[in-house]
Simulated scan of single mutants.
Amino acid sequence: MLDIKITKAATLKAKPADETKLGFGKIFTDHMFLMEYTRGQGWHDARIVPYAPFILDPACVVFHYAQEIFEGMKAYRAVDGTIQLFRPDCNAKRMQDSCDRLCIPTIPVEDYIQAVKALVEVEKDWVPHTEGASLYIRPFIFATDVGLGVHASPTYTFCIIVAPSGAYYAEGINPVRIYVEDEYVRAAPGLTGFTKCGGNYAASIKAGELAEEKGFAQVLWLDGVEKKYVEEVGSMNIMFKISGKIYTAPCTGTVLPGVTRRSCIELLRDWGYEVVEEHVAIADIMKAGHDGTLEEVFGTGTAAVVSPVKELDWKDDKVFICDGKIGPLTQKLYNTMTGMQWGKIPDDKGWIVPVCKG
């Protein structure tokens, strides 16, 4: 168990007056969690301190060799006033997997959860009251050794910052248009596709900007070897309902094992759906779109929870889904997931972890 020392800020920031204009990742709270790692000593000096910039040497390893990873999760203000987390153990275990691939020392699951809960409790007044809004939580680790040369750093910083964020669907759930990328690739076997490291996202920006210029909301990535099989969307996993079955790419090294993805699969199987985790060719997806068997398409992720897709565009071939509306299964998943997260329906899965009363 961590011995977390807390130093409160002398002056607190004014809370946002209008929670409908929070946006995402633009406003940060008064405090942050910090902990350092030193080889031979392990993780040490766990503390919550006033939010402030880092002072880093220009030769810091993270700047030159990108040895860093991060997570993304939320704290929710439930209808009874309880502030709660959604499956934080899954985020903690995924961070351990990312650490292992990037040669970063892992943090015990219980320490990760304790650190998140401690910071959220300190910042509980920042958890929004508006329906659909939440406190976004960003844990991250970066290498701090000073010196050039490709090697695993002997020192690291673990930090958690939090940001009140508005409802993803402020004006209702709007299905999105997706561009299928067949030139650039996001990941390939043996690389870091299954981790949450910044390099994955940096490499995706180019294709994302090109898609945006064409009027698309996201990029659907194909596999990095044959550029044939669907994998994931820029910020989400993706699922396809074809002839009553749900298809999604397997998490076998090139696809991020999303916590929302995992949760949706569990719910779908509870409801009697067959969920097939296998490689599906984009050509087969488009064919299903044209012959009418592609019934629903939706992305899954922490930010949007469930995001309906109304159009796929691949090599100038287009398919349209659900007449541009959210499908009934997509809506049911969204209602169930958000209902549990905001305490509107019972948690019969054991996914909710209470933090404190708001």
Rank of each mutant, 00 (worst) to 15 (best):
E71Q: 03
G190A: 03
Q218I: 03
W43S: 13
V150N: 03
H31F: 08
W271H: 09
L2T: 09
G198D: 08
M32G: 05
V319A: 14
K214V: 01
Q331R: 08
T7G: 10
G40K: 01
A9R: 06
L148G: 03
S263D: 08
A152D: 12
A118V: 06
L267D: 02
Q218S: 03
P108I: 14
A118S: 10
V185G: 00
R101K: 15
A207R: 06
T29Y: 13
E296F: 02
A118Q: 13
W43Q: 05
G272D: 02
E274G: 12
K26I: 02
K26C: 10
T330Y: 01
D57H: 13
L119F: 08
C264A: 15
I205W: 14
D182Q: 08
K214R: 12
M32E: 13
P164Y: 00
C90E: 09
A46E: 07
C60R: 06
D348H: 09
I104E: 08
K206D: 04
I27T: 14
G208M: 13
I160H: 04
E19V: 11
V120F: 06
Q67A: 10
I326W: 00
C197E: 05
A59L: 12
H129I: 14
M236T: 00
H64N: 09
C356K: 05
H64C: 11
S153H: 07
G198V: 06
K124G: 14
Y247K: 03
N237G: 03
M337K: 05
T248D: 06
S165M: 06
W351I: 11
K227I: 06
T192L: 15
I282G: 03
A92R: 11
S98W: 04
A187P: 00
D45L: 10
S98G: 11
S235D: 08
E278H: 12
I326F: 00
G301H: 06
T330D: 01
T106N: 02
F70Y: 09
F70V: 12
D45N: 11
L333W: 02
T330P: 01
G350W: 04
Y179A: 11
Y273W: 02
V122D: 04
T20Y: 09
G81Q: 04
T302E: 02
N200Q: 08
E274K: 14
V176K: 08
E171H: 15
Y169E: 01
G224W: 12
V49S: 07
P154W: 06
I4F: 07
T293I: 07
I141K: 02
F33T: 01
A17S: 09
L85N: 05
E121G: 05
T300C: 10
C90F: 11
S165I: 14
